[in-house]
Design a protein around this nucleic acid. Structure first.
Lengths: 332, 332
DNA sequence: CTGAAAGCGCTAACAC
DNA sequence: GTGTTAGCGCTTTCAG
């Protein structure tokens, strides 16, 4: 494999100077039509591609990339989010740098550091607890947008966790349920748990239903959620409906209700599941829009690059209540 | 926001030359312990991070990135695959560039082109039909690994589609089923469809079961698969077991069997589903290892970077038969 | 052990 | 319209 071609190789071949080739390729300065044709012909023939890294160095500005830091790509939610970012970035000629933190603050710092060393134009981060992306980005003067969960001193794009939860729980209450249980979030999602719980409480309050601490349960895994549901159903005054505030909780709830044969208990989940409609009974859900979240974050970062210097703001991407099947109403 | 710090700023501050700072940072040349300490102190204090792009330019070699091109990040399979790539790459100090082709050859070419312009050290591509990543990469002298589906003239990492399908179908046959239907793949997955169908046929042959073209059905979407299953079940001599060779087929089959109330028909899917275990009956599957696929591809590319110049080879990442619930045996 | 000069591939700033 | 010079931030080369 021979040495990569440079601007000079093309220039020599076309009988012009390097700068002229540069002009043709970047379409800036004035170039005679004939010259332009000749240069383009050579470029085409030898398959020349200018070195983007060299260009970045010279122009001094940030590189045409955005860094995206996620906790975990195995989670379909973050995969879809990454897809939204990629599409929005590519539409603007930017390439996405991808990094995983594993939810660990130290790894997040490493990844952010590596991205900044590459002179990323912007950073999009789903923050790990205790992370310092904000400080790093500010020190480097790079726009930062937190995604899915807020962080300090920076723009932020989140789902309408509170309003979505309220709407979902209101739906259950509308079916006549007065004892609605809340199945809690992962600890990694402290923010989302808090917001969704707040939405749950708002719905209860608005419907005049009595809040009951006994009906709020915590679970980290689907197995824990399953046990939590069994405990809830064994209460003296058990819930007639469940609001599973995340995927694990929903999975555990489906298992528990299925194994207990309790088709009389209503279930509604926050965050949609791929197979929700094939479950029996089909699972209604407050669907998030992860790709929309990613796209909104990318757009916000691009606006900052375009000079938007207003104070940091938080954008909310709406959730959508997806009703499937009737769902059991409360027994009188 | 002030100008980014450079090597010279650090050098001036530490009272040494730029080259000495460079030596300290790269740990190559000999540096007096005292000097090194002083330099490191300044680097630490001012938070200096060397510009990786400038380094790449000067050293001339490829940049410390690998380009990953996927059809669609919304698909959890590719998300997990990306996670495997990222982890393996980061372990070697490489950053992942992410691009989506949407399964379109033209967009794939654009993305590959952009990556090559960034002097990516290697390319990992889930190829779109009709794509020319191979030609582009060869012209640029960049190692290329095809992932999930093979492509021309390059390394390749795929799942054990054929052996996995054979194992899955053999399991159904082992339950006594003799009429096992095959639900086909998306057109985008021509390769995987062919391989999985071949595995299905091998299993039938080995078990001495008669192959029957009527039992091989095609479906692009879950809805199509659902209709296909209803047609199959209406045959004069209907199947007693279904092998769904992909996620859409499996989804459609679950819906069809559920709505028809046919719990007597066995179902086994290729590619595991997140909620497979909460279905009723639980869904057994031939699970792929997307993260393993990505990691293997990254390792193969890294080996090429390390000088491995053997002819292109194909690696196979094993699938795993995940049995859930007993599954109905054939009726005598 | 350390520094000065040159140059990676490209473009900004000025010539002509 | 086009070419020349200089220099982005870094590392290589070669002197000290």
């Amino acid at each position: 494999m021979e040495r990569r071609l440079t601007l000079h190789d093309v220039a020599r071949e076309a009988g012009v100077s390097a700068k002229t080739v540069s002009r043709v390729l970047n379409g800036d300065g004035p170039v005679a039509a004939a010259t332009r044709e000749r240069v383009l012909a050579v470029v085409e023939r030898v398959g020349f591609r200018p070195n983007l890294l060299a260009r970045s160095i010279r122009t001094g500005g940030p590189d045409a990339t955005v860094g995206l830091v996620l906790p975990d790509l195995a989670n379909p939610f973050f995969g879809a989010l990454a897809g939204g970012v990629e599409e929005a970035a590519r539409a603007r000629g930017l390439t996405v740098l991808l990094g995983c933190s594993g939810g660990d603050a130290a790894r997040e710092a490493e990844v952010v550091s590596a991205f900044l060393a590459r002179r990323t134009a912007a950073l999009l981060v789903v923050p790990a607890a205790g992370g310092e992306a904000s400080a790093q980005a500010r020190a480097a003067g790079v726009p930062l947008v937190f995604v899915d969960r807020p962080g300090p001193d920076a723009d932020c794009v989140v789902s309408s966790n509170r309003a979505g939860a309220r709407e979902g729980v209101a739906h259950l209450l509308g079916l006549g349920h007065r004892r609605v249980a809340f199945l809690g979030d992962l600890p990694a999602g402290l923010y989302t748990r808090r917001e969704r719980l707040a939405g749950y409480r708002e719905a209860l309050r608005e419907a005049g239903a009595a809040p009951d601490g006994e009906l709020v349960a915590d679970a980290r895994t689907a197995a824990e959620a399953e046990r939590a549901v069994l405990r809830l159903l064994a209460l003296p005054d058990p819930p007639t409906a469940l609001f599973a505030s995340n995927v694990n909780a929903a999975t555990g709830a489906v298992l528990a209700l299925g194994r207990a044969g309790r088709r009389d208990v209503a279930l509604l989940a926050f965050d949609d599941l791929p197979l929700a409609e094939v479950l029996d009974p089909p699972l209604s859900a407050v669907a998030q829009d992860p790709a929309g979240l990613g796209a909104a974050a990318a757009r916000l970062a691009l606006a900052r690059l375009d000079g938007d210097a207003t104070p940091p703001r938080t954008e909310t991407v709406p959730t959508r209540l997806v009703l499937r099947g009737a769902g059991p109403a409360a027994r009188p």
